[in-house]
Design a protein around this nucleic acid. Structure first.
Lengths: 196, 196
DNA sequence: GGTGCGGGCTAACGTGTGTTAGTTTTTATA
DNA sequence: TATAAAAACTAACACACGTTAGCCCGCACC
């Protein structure tokens, strides 16, 4: 089975991965050809295979790098002694932060993961499902404790997660308002709503 | 230029379009082959071309059908005499409604439009941009009038639009809570936030 | 100064794709 | 029932794709 190891920073392999993430985001995984990727890196298509195992492994690396990141974070949040509303806020801020700092990777892992092959596809789905479940548990606990208003926790989590999953507008917005303001805006909307 | 006409309901062309929308949603536009589509319809790939112009025209039809729908709706909302917060709510409810009732079409138009070819791609981008702009104007006016709290209107609209753009979870959720409850949950979160 | 090898190259293979051409079958109408 | 149009079929084309095979250059190292 394919290993999901991270290559050391600055290596050619890592460069290829970065360029691939950018292309996959821009045009989609399937719409990006290895010849195109190679040209963007500055070599021939065949030369790519001196560094990587194939197109699918590129996608796998990207997706699991992000998934591991979020899984690690939610464990940390669960272990913290904040109340549930604060935990939601922590996760919200982390999502925005990751999106701003690792746009290509997060976007691709969110929109292109379907193109992975088995068995990684199933494993990824499971990680995703579990993450949502843990997030939902936090919201549900918050409702039980009276910190969060009564609503369907699944819907709430779905909305929150989707709202962050990117559009091409992210960067344009971040250039107008600062990353910090963006975070605060999002938290403000979700915690207290639009109404003045 | 390709015409974006709607075929009469029940026609074979419409059936093909519907099946195509379902497949494009499930597997992505590029990952769906004409042979696969044909098999789903119950004919041979070549036979499709007695009814449609090609793969790209399928995507074009789907995308513009949805885009026209939303453009029509926002004109209607703008013309109504509700206040700005109510207008946001009207649009929110419409988005949820369309997503629930026309899942495949809305999903595909939202996630696969990049695969369109020129000149439709540019035209679609423009429609999308304009829609967001009109939505943003409503929010901005709401802020000026003191109905909506002070925040970056672009961020707010981006969040709202993204939050609705689908996940594979939509249907599962709709089967657990009713479509009406889903709508109310969303409106509640966005208007008044999560806090109790 | 030879040598191993990382990393680039060209050429090509096999496959799957969207689409067309040409033909036959089915359906509707007179 | 005859006939024309609609809609299915088979066969094939041209192309783009991911990937492999085999080669060659230049650099580090004994």
């Amino acid at each position: 089975m394919a290993k999901i190891k991270t290559s050391e920073p600055g290596s050619k392999k890592e460069i290829i991965q970065k360029v691939a993430a950018a292309l996959f985001r821009e045009k989609g995984f399937r719409a990006t050809s290895m010849r195109e990727l190679a040209a963007s890196v500055g070599i021939e298509a065949a030369s790519l295979y001196n560094h990587i195992d194939g197109k699918n492994d590129l996608l796998i690396s990207i997706c699991f790098k992000v998934a591991n990141n979020f899984t690690r974070k939610i464990s940390e949040v669960e272990a913290s002694d904040s109340n549930m509303l604060e935990k939601v806020e922590l996760l919200l801020r982390f999502h925005v932060h990751e999106m701003v700092n690792d746009y290509d990777y997060v976007y691709v892992s969110d929109r292109e993961w379907r193109n992975m092959e088995e068995p990684e596809l199933t494993r990824y789905r499971e990680m995703r499902r579990l993450y949502r479940r843990r997030f939902t548990n936090i919201v549900e606990k918050g409702i039980l404790r009276g910190e969060i208003k009564k609503l369907d926790a699944n819907t709430a989590v779905m909305i929150i997660l989707n709202s962050i999953s990117a559009v091409d507008q992210w960067h344009r917005i971040v250039h107008k308002v600062s990353a910090k303001d963006l975070e605060d805006n999002m938290v403000s909307i979700f915690i207290d709503g639009l109404r003045k």
